[in-house]
Design a protein around this nucleic acid. Sequence first.
DNA 1: TTCTTATTAGTACGAGTGTACTCACATAAT
DNA 2: ATTATGTGAGTACACTCGTACTAATAAGAA
Lengths: 214, 214
Amino acid sequence: MAEEGCSHIAGCYYVALKPMPRRIDAEARTAAIAEASLRVLERDGLSGLSVRGVAAETGIAAASLRRAFATQHALREYCLQLIEDRVTARVSALDLTGRALVDELLLQLLPLDKERRMELVAQVQLGVLSLTDSELVPAAIRLSNAVDRACHAAVMILAEAGQFYSGRDPEYEARRLRALLDGIAMQGLWSGELPESSEMPSMLARHLDELAGP
Amino acid sequence: MAEEGCSHIAGCYYVALKPMPRRIDAEARTAAIAEASLRVLERDGLSGLSVRGVAAETGIAAASLRRAFATQHALREYCLQLIEDRVTARVSALDLTGRALVDELLLQLLPLDKERRMELVAQVQLGVLSLTDSELVPAAIRLSNAVDRACHAAVMILAEAGQFYSGRDPEYEARRLRALLDGIAMQGLWSGELPESSEMPSMLARHLDELAGP
DNA sequence: TTCTTATTAGTACGAGTGTACTCACATAAT
DNA sequence: ATTATGTGAGTACACTCGTACTAATAAGAA
């Protein structure tokens, strides 16, 4: 704070007294911590999402984690954000159109492999926590809204591809699809199904087939 | 333990030395505790389901709770059992037939009033816990199976009432109904909808309507 | 080099946890 | 009245929790 402005020397520099210390890759740190948090959430549940536990899973000191996330609420919030980012990234990378796009888009929200299962378990754990922790509600709603948008987009894509019967109500079908998707996901979570023995994709496909006709 | 068999007295009784002490209404106790647990689960979440917390909510001493439920796992298990019992009792009390019965039957599984919402929140909290606590899995599966049976029964009732299109696959429709029901329930839980502004019943009814036709 | 910061390990505090006791008291069957 | 038991209140132990420090070390920019 105290700048030693030496007025008796010709070269007085009021600027650029910053030594520019150790570089920080804060982004990578927080990302690593949040991903470790997802692993912890799936393995140990909500009670495992503690400062010491996550720090150990990340492989850093508890104090370092405390510097990246000043409070555990910030950590929980960022976990929900990370889940949204990861799903969004996967969906954006899809290079498909029409019904095929819709299929893959919705499958990204079902626990069909380790990664998606981990995300979904973490999402449900934090979502349930938000039922009794109002601080977490905004973040949970944000993630939920993203899923809502995906379902609405799915219906629109089907309609544009001519695979959505014009007599149906797009608004209603989008909301029904959202509910069905959540239900299928829960069913898959609880039964701990293996990736390929799962009946989730066929169930979803059958429902989408119906939307094409009256 | 030590029986004073006085052999010098004529009337020696080797049996019936039990004084038969204080009467117990253990059943009412456990029920009161479990119901308090549901209240705690909805208000404070899983972290509130502690020995001291539940005892305080029940209005008894912690030691008394500990006598009724020797371990907290037993308490959590009984909560799931109580939820199943309460829903089963409500469903059994329905005096309806055909579509009306199906409607009311399924509405018993949606959070349409304080009681049903409390049950559902508790069920979800404990269900999520069972994802990382294998001890709780059997009880959670038992409750889930009960819901499955209800959905299958709903389809069968519709079929017998002639409100289920014969071209549809009952097995698939039962599983889809289950998923949809869970999804609608989640949607209702998170949005914290008021009892009457809810769109859950109409959404469910609309789906059931579809089952009657091709 | 020097300077500045991030990271680390460690400690500490107050609180809450499950579990396991003890002891006085009230109550119902004998 | 006597007796065995359930209850309530309290205490204790060994944890873990979030949070907040300190001091030492490591590493990059000047």
